[in-house]
Design a protein around this nucleic acid. Structure first.
Length: 645
RNA sequence: GCUGAUGUAGCUCAGCGGUAGAGCAGCGCACUCGUAAUGCGCAGGUCGUGGGUUCAAAUCCCACCAUCAGCUCCA
């Protein structure tokens, strides 16, 4: 009567929605899922039990609060991909038994596994590994968790000749329980949890192989890292690969060349060139910037690129930023190329006495700075060695801090909205190499928090990520592909005013110390243009487009009218080009579309006769005939309002 | 900086020990044409740079330069 007794011993578990479900004692989480729905039976990858993630193979206890996760849940996806990483490691060990296992976590997009292998893996190797992965998935090995003692674990991995695993275990406290996960012949040290079976993984795609240091430190040995991604269905993988393709298609380095906007010569690694068309976009961005700053009460200055060593010693850059700076000698004296604009702005501030009545004093500067970046990190316009910061330094009374920060937040918000970006805010606090006392940092940080809270903006805190002179608020904007870019930043600074002995004359007639804000909106004009290029996929809105209208002749007899139309557009301030080549219309239209010109005007007999133009809108095709002045009026409005259409 | 891959005409790429090739772009000629590539012809390269091996190097070896991917995700 053993069976009867089991049936009677039901235990209660609490489900996600609060309902109580009774299951036989000794049930696993997998059993519970299977009893709830067919969908869960198939798709549950892991369970959250009383807040902790647990393998589906583990048993439930009475009163457990249980929630089942699938690939759709972030944590479920992480487990799914972590198991994928184990499958990758198993496949690699089969094909390359001499490769040593290290670590293999799931990451934001996919997973990786690092191996110490005598031979570097090639792309062909990856294809073979992928085949082996398919076999492992097909074999559908159960993934079995096992708890062993510290000693047993070390002995096991010593026997397996896996020195990195032994090292990892040795770093754990000796009394700790160590968990092992096995699937088929493969066993890995792992905290888990994992999928119950290898067959639950749908498709795995290995993406790339690259070097990576053991524990991320350059002092350690370089390992071979294989990156991969996995999905339940081929369709999901295809979509992911399509998204990668789309990002490649939008790569600003590629578009910058195709559209003739900018480029980088071998002779100047990290020092970009702007070509005439890129220069137009850049100038439009700067015009917009000047216009906004005028309206927000800023004055503009320009400080020199090269300044004497003594200045950089006083500012702290000599001690805190030296390895990123370029130096030169002039008349036997040491000079540095500026990596930041703040000391220049401070020198201007110090050219005369300031009254409390003129604060806040907002000094803006499009300042060209140079910073030494390691050769391996350069990347088009996004990571360069010289760039133009759309900088500003605000000198103010301590009681103006919160209002000023809110003012800057409003300005940055206005900037990003113009380009159709949404954004996220982060607050960074005191770093290791900071200048200034804890009290000052405390005060500065709480001022930033106060401004954010007053604006009701949600933010994330990054401990220890601030600048050496003060805490900061960073703006991470999100582009049309959902990627994040750090651009704007607001940094509060009590240190520089102290170092440079900055003062203002207060109401009481005596000298007081002002507070400083450093801030950028674009961040770097060059980088922002790179981001915009990818965001718009090269199809810039009319206000930024290097050529706004291209006028195309059908046959050579139409050229005089084409030139007349172009002249009228030009007179109304529109950037226009004429294509009067002896080519077919189809050819010229194709050129115009490839150049991503917002409007093409096609002119043939009909247009000449009726003195009209035929409008073709970028990406939409022929939109029919129009009167020229009507077209110009609409386009001017589109440009004026900076519409993204 | 480190690991790996790459570097051939303005662009995209083929050639991988026997002395440089295509398509597009450019130039010329013909066609005068209605919404994403008309046809024919011409011209264009010290094969990233510098060494070496060889009768012979774009091709093999070494060094350097540049580019690309990665080097934060921690059993």
């Amino acid at each position: 009567m053993k069976g009867d007794r089991q049936v009677q011993e039901l235990i209660p578990v609490i489900l996600k929605d609060g309902t109580i479900h009774h299951v036989p004692q000794g049930s696993t989480l997998g059993d519970v899922a299977a009893g709830l729905s067919r969908r869960l039976a198939k798709e549950a990858v892991v369970a959250r039990v009383n807040g902790d993630l647990k393998d589906l193979a583990s048993q439930v206890r009475p009163e457990d609060k249980v929630e089942f996760l699938t690939f759709e849940d972030e944590d479920g996806r992480t487990v799914y991909r972590h198991t994928s990483a184990h499958i990758l490691a198993q496949a690699v060990k089969r094909l390359f038994p001499e490769a040593k296992l290290t670590i293999g976590p799931a990451i934001e997009e996919g997973f990786y596994y690092d191996f110490d292998s005598p031979e570097a893996f090639t792309t062909e190797d990856l294809a073979r590994v992928e085949e082996e992965i398919k076999k492992i998935i097909k074999a559908d090995y159960p993934v079995v968790r096992q708890e062993v003692t510290h000693e047993e674990a070390i002995e096991f991995f010593n026997k397996q000749d896996e020195p990195y695993k032994v090292k990892l275990i040795e770093e754990l406290p000796p009394e700790a329980q160590v968990t092992l996960y096995s699937q088929g012949e493969f066993t890995d040290l792992c905290l888990g949890p994992h999928l119950p079976r290898t067959g639950m993984v749908g498709v795995v795609k290995l993406l790339s192989v690259a070097g990576a240091y053991w524990r991320g430190s350059e002092k350690n040995k370089m390992l071979q890292r294989i990156y991969g991604i996995s999905f339940p269905k081929q369709k999901d993988l295809d979509e992911y690969l399509k998204r990668i393709e789309e990002a490649k298609r939008r790569d600003h380095r590629k578009l910058g060349q195709e559209l003739d906007l900018f480029g980088i010569a071998d002779e100047g690694p990290g020092f970009p060139f702007f070509y005439p068309k890129g220069m137009i976009i850049r100038t439009e961005l700067e015009n917009f910037w000047r216009d906004v700053h005028r309206r927000w009460g800023y004055k503009e200055i320009k400080s020199p690129i090269i300044l004497n060593r003594s200045l950089w010693e006083r500012s702290g850059h000599w001690d805190h930023y030296k390895e990123n700076m370029y130096f030169l000698k002039i008349d036997e004296e040491d000079y540095a190329v500026k990596p930041m604009n703040c000391p220049g702005a401070i020198l201007y501030y110090k050219t005369r006495l300031h009254s409390y009545r003129e604060l806040p004093l907002r000094l803006a500067e499009l300042g060209l700075v140079h910073r030494h970046e390691r050769s391996g990190v350069l990347h088009g316009l996004l990571r360069v060695r010289c760039f133009t910061q759309d900088d500003a330094h605000i000198f103010m009374l301590p009681e103006q801090i919160t209002d000023e920060i809110i003012n800057v937040i409003n300005l940055i918000d206005y900037f990003y909205r113009t380009f159709g970006f949404t954004y996220r805010v982060e607050l960074s606090t005191k770093p290791e190499n900071a200048m200034g006392s804890d009290e000052i940092w405390e005060l500065a940080t709480s001022s930033l928090v106060k401004a954010l809270e007053k604006k009701g903006i949600p933010y994330q805190v990054n401990e220890g990520d601030g600048a050496f002179y003060g805490p900061k608020i960073d703006f991470h904007l999100q582009d049309s592909l959902g990627r994040n870019w750090q651009c704007g930043t607001i940094q509060l600074d009590f240190v520089m005013p102290e170092n440079f002995d900055l003062t203002y004359i207060g109401e009481d007639g005596s000298r007081h110390r002002p507070v400083m804000i450093h801030r950028v909106a674009f961040g770097s004009i060059e980088r922002f243009l790179g981001i915009l290029t990818e965001h718009y996929a090269g199809a810039f809105p009319a206000w930024l487009a290097p050529v706004q209208v291209k006028v195309i002749s059908v046959a050579s007899r139409h050229v005089p009218y084409v030139l007349d139309v172009a002249r009228q557009l030009e007179e109304r301030g529109i950037r226009v080009e004429v294509d009067d080549e002896n080519e077919r219309v189809g050819y010229k239209i194709r050129q115009g579309e490839l150049e991503k010109v917002p409007y093409l005007l096609v002119i043939g007999d009909q247009e000449v006769d009726s003195r009209t133009v035929r409008v073709r809108k970028r990406g939409e095709g022929d939109t029919g005939p129009a009167r020229l002045d009507e077209f110009i009026r609409k386009l001017q409005q589109e440009i004026e309002q900076k519409l993204c259409i």
